[in-house]
C-alpha cells in the first residue's frame, strides 16, 4: 500500500494513475504537477511540471498508444498537454480557448483518436482533437449557464442499433460518441456527437440536484445499462441509469438521507461498477449496487 505524504506544498486536487498503473500524476494548488513512479509500496518522484499560473485542478493521462501524454487544466483557464520523450517532459500544446478557470478535462476513449474534452467556468465545453498533422480542431459550445464543473466521456463500446428499414434484421453499427457534463446550473447534460454537423448536440438534460453539480462520472463497464453518477454541493449523489442507448434516464438517489457534507468527486471502478465518492468531510465512501437495485455502502477510507 502506497502512502505518499506531503507530495505537494499545498492542497492536492487530483491524483490519477496512468493506464498501466505505473505512474501517478498529482496536481495541486501550488501550481505544479508532480509525476511519481509507483511500484508496489515504493514511490519515487520523477518530475515536477511547472507552467501553470494558477492552481491546477485536474490531470488526465492519455491512452498509451499515443505516447506518454498528460493533460492538465487550471484556474488560469489554460489546458496544457505535456509529453515525455526520452525521459524528459515538455509541453507540447497549450489549449487556451476558455476565458475562465477550466475545471475538468478528460481524454476521449482512444478509439476516437486524440481528443480532449474540457469544461470551464465560462459556461462552455470544448472538445479538441489533436490530429496527426498537428492541426488542432476545437469544437466549442455553450453548455451550462453559470459554469461547467465537470465533464466525462461515455465509455466506447460497440453500439448496435436496429435499423428499422427493411432488409430483415440488419443491425447497423454506429459509433456513438457521448459525454456527460455537470454544471453550476444544477443540471446534468448528456451530449451526443453529430458527425454530420461536426458538433455535439444536447441529447438529454437531467435535473436532479438543488445545488451545483460538482462531478459527473460515467461508468466504464456497460453491462445491462449505462450508469452516470452525479454528485453535488447539495450533499446528494444521484445515479442515472439508461437501459438502452436512447432510452430515458432514470434517476435514483444513492441514499435517501443527505450526506454529512458536500460531495466533490465521484469515480467508478473500471469493472464491477463500484462507486467511490469523496466529499467535504474528507472521507471516501464506496458504494455498490446490490441485487435488488439499491445502493449500499461497501467500505470507506479515512485518512
Amino acid at each position: 500500500m502506497v502512502t505518499i505524504t506531503n507530495a505537494h506544498n499545498d492542497v492536492i486536487h487530483d491524483a490519477i494513475l496512468d493506464y498501466y498503473g505505473k505512474r501517478l500524476a498529482t496536481c495541486s494548488s501550488d501550481k505544479t504537477i508532480k509525476i511519481f513512479e509507483v511500484e508496489g509500496d515504493s514511490h519515487k518522484l520523477v518530475e515536477t511540471l511547472i507552467g501553470h499560473e494558477g492552481p491546477v485542478w485536474r490531470v488526465d493521462w492519455a491512452h498509451p498508444k499515443f505516447g506518454t501524454i498528460l493533460a492538465s487544466c487550471s484556474y488560469d483557464g489554460k489546458v496544457i498537454i505535456w509529453r515525455e520523450e526520452g525521459g524528459k517532459w515538455a509541453q507540447i500544446a497549450v489549449h487556451a480557448v476558455h476565458s475562465a478557470s477550466v475545471n475538468s478535462i478528460q481524454w476521449a476513449p482512444h478509439e476516437y483518436g486524440v481528443m480532449l474534452l474540457c469544461g470551464s467556468s465560462d459556461g462552455k465545453i470544448s472538445v479538441v482533437e489533436f490530429k496527426e498533422n498537428g492541426a488542432v480542431a476545437p469544437i466549442v459550445f455553450d453548455a451550462h449557464t453559470i459554469g461547467v464543473n465537470s465533464v466525462c466521456w461515455a465509455p466506447a463500446t460497440i453500439q448496435e442499433e436496429a435499423a428499422p428499414a427493411g432488409e430483415g434484421n440488419v443491425t447497423v453499427q454506429k459509433e456513438l460518441r457521448r459525454f456527460v457534463s455537470g454544471g453550476a446550473d444544477n443540471l446534468v447534460k448528456i451530449w451526443k456527437y453529430d458527425a454530420a454537423a461536426q458538433t455535439y448536440n444536447l441529447e438529454d438534460t437531467l435535473d436532479g440536484h438543488s445545488d451545483w453539480v460538482r462531478d459527473v462520472a460515467w461508468s466504464p463497464s456497460v453491462l445491462l445499462r449505462s450508469y452516470i453518477a452525479s454528485v453535488s454541493q447539495d450533499k446528494t449523489c444521484v445515479i442515472w441509469t439508461q437501459d438502452k442507448d436512447n432510452g430515458a434516464w432514470k434517476k435514483t438517489l444513492l441514499q435517501e438521507d443527505k450526506f454529512p457534507d458536500v460531495l466533490w468527486r465521484a469515480s467508478w471502478s473500471l469493472s464491477g461498477n463500484i462507486l467511490a465518492l469523496s466529499g467535504g468531510d474528507n472521507k471516501v465512501t464506496l458504494w455498490k449496487e446490490n441485487l435488488e437495485g439499491t445502493w449500499e455502502p461497501a467500505g470507506e477510507v479515512e485518512q
Partner: peptide
C-alpha cells in the same frame, strides 16, 4: 467567477481494483 471550491480529497480506481485516495491532512 463561478469557479467552484476546489476539492481537497478524492479517490480514483486503478485497473487492478485498488483505490487511490488523497486527502489534506489534519
Amino acid at each position: 467567477d463561478s469557479t467552484p471550491i476546489p476539492n481537497q480529497c478524492g479517490a480514483f480506481w486503478t485497473p487492478t481494483g485498488q483505490l487511490l485516495c488523497f486527502f489534506p491532512a489534519e
